[in-house]
């Protein structure tokens, strides 16, 4: 019996990832890849988004400088962790997309109108709170607001099992089409969701940092670093 326990302890010890200062090798490696990607982006001076699932936080940065931070209330993830690699926003999609007001005028026929027009502009309140962000690495980020009423809470609690039951079907369908399916569903406060939609424009790079446990799951057999 005692021998069996020793053997079990040995097995557990062998299976545990290499730790350094509380961080596993896989986590350090993930951080290394992300930091390298962030350094390249910081050098370019372009704005970029860091989705930090470990700290439940979104950071909009330029030159390594956090311009704005938003909180993630909760998240769900579907797909292999390795798919969450650096990417750029390809397209944004929402059921109620904000519309720009278009004024058509003619230079050859000036109207001579001087009357004050009603104030109409594209503002933060016009931004949607539920939308999808398609990244160029095939990952879909869905954003929805945090439930505030009991009806919303009930609906979202029913939506969770439905979400997990429907994803395998979407994965299978996408496999047949030849493209893997990865999704990240974020629940955010409504105002933060609007501000993310406003700031995160097409072509903006995005980095996703996974929690330590998930980073370990995506670890390759050998560790590698380039800096």
């Amino acid at each position: 019996m005692r021998a069996a326990l020793y053997f079990l302890c040995l097995l557990l010890n062998a299976a545990s990832p290499v730790m350094a200062g509380g961080q596993s090798l896989a986590e350090l490696q993930q951080v290394n890849v992300l930091l390298q990607a962030e350094y390249d982006l910081a050098k370019s001076g372009k704005p970029y988004l860091v989705i930090n699932l470990q700290d439940h936080q979104l950071e909009f940065k330029t030159s390594g400088l956090p311009l704005e931070q938003w909180s993630i209330d909760s998240y769900r993830r579907w797909g292999h962790p390795s798919a969450m690699r650096p990417a750029s926003l390809k397209i944004k999609s929402a059921l109620a997309e904000p519309k720009r007001e278009v004024q058509v005028v003619s230079a050859t026929e000036p109207s001579g109108e001087t009357a004050e027009k009603p104030f109409n502009a594209l503002e933060l309140t016009d931004m949607p709170t539920s939308y999808r962000l398609y990244l160029d690495n095939g990952t879909t980020v869905t954003v929805h607001p945090v439930s505030v009423s009991w009806f919303d809470s009930l609906r979202s609690s029913l939506a969770v099992p439905a979400w997990y039951l429907s994803r395998p079907f979407i994965s299978s369908w996408n496999f047949l089409r030849g493209s893997p399916y990865n999704e990240l569903a974020l629940a955010m406060p409504a105002q933060d969701a609007r501000r993310l939609y406003w700031a995160f424009s097409e072509g903006t790079p995005c980095l996703i940092r996974l929690p330590a446990a998930e980073a370990t799951a995506s670890a390759p057999a050998t560790a590698g670093t380039n800096r």
Binding site: Q23, R85, G224, T225
Partner: peptide, 14 residues
């Protein structure tokens, strides 16, 4: 991981 695969694979310690 494609991100890690893109990195030159040189084994390092923690």
């Amino acid at each position: 991981s494609a991100a890690v695969a893109a990195v030159p694979q040189k084994a390092r310690t923690a």
